[in-house]
């Protein structure tokens, strides 16, 4: 089956990101195709390139990056939700006159239409809320 995940919670603030990452790994382990994880609402904080959790805590951002690298899972971040929360890529930073950017590279900023397409096109869309 083709799966997509919608993640609404920031890492560490809630368990949603941990649950979503565990579920994502299990979906792949059972032989399904995980098309994408869509990060919306506070979920956009999962894409923070500057997040520096202590070494002995789960590295959630790295976990998403591994999924993308090893299983070609798209990491799509809602642009409106991200910009309002300070998650911004180089192009948007230049456009808005900001001197830094904060989106980890394999994550991409995209529109909400992408979430709707995932929901319609995939066999299952599983939401992890916070």
């Amino acid at each position: 089956m083709r799966y997509a995940i919608l993640l609404l919670g920031a890492p560490y603030s809630s368990q949603a990101a941990h649950s979503a990452l565990r579920f994502a790994q299990a979906v792949i382990a059972r032989g399904h195709r995980l098309e994408a994880v869509f990060f919306y609402a506070d979920g956009v904080h999962n894409a923070a390139s500057l997040a520096t959790p202590p070494q002995d805590e789960p590295q959630i951002v790295d976990g998403w990056v591994d999924l993308q690298r090893d299983h070609d899972v798209r990491l799509e971040v809602c642009i409106a939700a991200a910009l309002r929360r300070g998650i911004i890529d180089a192009a948007e930073a230049a456009r808005h006159g900001k001197d830094g950017h904060s989106l980890a590279p394999p994550f991409t900023l995209t529109g909400l239409g992408q979430l709707i397409d995932l929901g319609v096109d995939c066999d299952r869309l599983i939401t992890f809320g916070a």
């Binding site: 919306y40 939700a81 709707i116």
Partner: peptide
């Protein structure tokens, strides 16, 4: 953010 998702879906 919920309403935005609804509006975008409708716009599509």
């Amino acid at each position: 953010e919920g309403l935005d998702a609804a509006l975008v879906a409708a716009a599509f």
